[in-house]
Design a protein around this nucleic acid. Structure first.
Lengths: 339, 339
DNA sequence: TATCAACACGAAACCGATTTCGTATCGGTG
DNA sequence: CACCGATACGAAATCGGTTTCGTGTTGATA
């Protein structure tokens, strides 16, 4: 086994000083022609590569980005991650991922693990629990230490930093408008419990679209489902006791389950019931019928987040100008709606 | 903004030496009672945390694991990743992810980026291109440097290292047997082009199950689909020109598409056509009808891979005993088969 | 009172790089 | 021949820790 070779090894072997080797390998003008060539040839021969850790220590730059997301087996988050990783890699950065598992404590622990020199900056989406507790001290500590932070999707006004979000309210508005325009009058909303985070924005859009089109709001047409939607009783009861001709779902899982439930009760989609879901993932494309969906453009979101972060990381001067980028969601029409 | 405080800062402030501070914070017996208390109190007050990079440099241990996977927007890989991350985090390790995007070059570049000190070991699944080229020098270089490596799912015999796989052949055999036992006689196989990697194992299982049950093998019942299966012509033609009463698909996407195609041609599932797919992902659970699937137990696979890697990393002595762990796949019966 | 171990702490090397600054050698110039 | 600037290289500090070894002080013992 050949261990990694260091500057010191090369210096010893060629009988020059470490500094000479270092300079020679950076092609410094300070070093003579033949000395440089000798050193460079030797280094190539032994496949010398500088030790990243040593460079990080010296530069106080790790070229690592920390990403903390609530879940990794999740279409939207992985899509965003894909964008982050893509952009970061192009810029020579590596990405360290931690999963908070929707837990406040894990989020805190993960941030602390990474904040002690392992990374140059954070990109994250808040865990559900963090949003509920409304406790953001761990984020504030990090920003106070001067570590750049970019929040995406699940953000908060409590922390001053860069943010990337989609215009959830507008997207929901547009989706409902599309349903109304196609002749639907009784439009249900399937959302998460407590209107958590982005769901509340989407609900706002739903309500305001109804208002704007003079459709009476019926709270009975709003169904709140748990994250872990294992039992179908709640939605089955909902289907049996309400009459409605369209549903807006805050994610594609709810949408597909709604479709299944409707079909099992003999309803045809989209003739009897139109459905639109957020998250244009693999389910939307491959369900039958395929699902009209609100595309959140995760890749772009990730790229933008990474771009914002790396800009901050690489600008030495302390910046105080924080931006919030808003990405326009778009509706992808498929078979679950009439058009 | 409060910058991070270092040992040197504490030493200067309390008028002791750096070594004393270091020892005091590790609660060394060498340091006097009150000195220790003074230092510890001061450190707590100013929220001292040792710099990971410095420790890494000194210890030659980063407590980082490098994971390289072909794709991240992918149910199976993220599931495995989930297991890796879970186990690694418990052991105090962070995970650096790189996506090879099924490209050989990216795989090489990513490995080189990480192999220069950033990580203590690798966990990876080979990219499709790497498997095709059959070129594993980048892996060999890494292992020759003494960096532990664990391959999972997409592995190769060419590289000597720890591996974690599922018994693809057996699983395919069992799936086909199940179809046969339920009365099916003409069983098709939908696989990837060139029987890439694990697909060939699954095909082997498919063929040997047919043989074992005296069912004549009909090469016309094997359909090879491209990774990017955008056009449906090939499978539509297949459906129109062949008659078959069951399909084994090497992934759930093929399975769902097969279901759609069959349904659009008026076939009922499972009465007219049984379908089993590999990858027990979200599609399998939520498609209609839901899909009988071969569960690959990604989480366990990830945990085992991480466990194997960390054991190697933490055992200082050079080990030469490499294991291949085989995970038993299980069939999850749902609505797309008769039972 | 001289000796010695125990105690408490500091100096310095080290991990592997970068970078500043100092200096020996050389050729050219007055 | 003395002086000077350019050339080519080395010594040492630095990043922020850990760890080995040395040492001054103290109290106990012979």
């Amino acid at each position: 086994m050949k261990r990694k070779i260091t500057l010191k090894d090369i210096a010893r072997e060629l009988d020059v000083s470490i500094s000479t080797v270092s300079k020679a390998l950076k092609n410094s003008e300070e070093i003579g022609r033949d000395t440089k060539e000798r050193i460079q040839a030797f280094a190539k021969l032994y496949n010398y590569k500088p030790n990243n850790i040593a460079i990080s220590l010296k530069n106080k730059r790790t070229k690592n980005i920390g990403v903390i997301i609530p879940d990794i087996v999740h279409h939207f988050f992985t899509t965003v991650f894909r964008g982050i990783e893509k952009y970061a890699n192009e810029k020579g950065y590596n990405v360290i991922v931690c999963v908070s598992d929707e837990s406040f404590d894990k989020e805190v622990i993960n941030m602390e693990m990474l904040a002690n020199g392992s990374i140059d900056g954070f990109i994250m989406a808040l865990s559900a629990e963090t949003q509920k507790r409304n406790d953001f001290n761990h984020l504030k500590e990090v920003t106070e230490q001067g570590i750049p932070l970019v929040l995406f999707d699940r953000v908060t006004d409590e922390v001053v930093c860069d943010k990337v979000i989609i215009n959830d309210e507008q997207a929901a508005y547009d989706a409902v408008k599309k349903l109304i325009d196609s002749g639907r009058k009784r439009i249900a909303l399937f959302t998460t419990e407590n209107y958590l985070g982005v769901s509340s924005k989407r609900a706002d859009g739903y309500f305001s679209a109804l208002k704007a089109h003079k459709i009476e709001i019926d709270e009975n047409l709003v169904l709140q489902l748990p994250f872990q939607f294992e039992n179908e009783d709640k939605s089955e009861a909902f289907f049996k006791s309400r009459s409605f001709d369209a549903v807006l779902c805050v994610n594609e899982i709810f949408a597909v389950r709604a479709m299944r439930m409707a079909q099992s009760m003999g309803k045809r989609i989209p003739q009897d019931l139109s459905i639109i879901g957020f998250t244009d993932g693999i389910l939307s494309k491959l369900s039958s019928p395929s699902l009209t969906a609100v595309a959140q453009h995760g890749i772009r979101m990730g790229e933008i987040a990474a771009k914002m972060l790396i800009e901050k990381v690489e600008s030495d001067r302390e910046q105080e100008n924080f931006r919030t980028e808003i990405i326009q969601a778009t509706i992808i029409e498929r078979e679950s709606t009439i058009h």
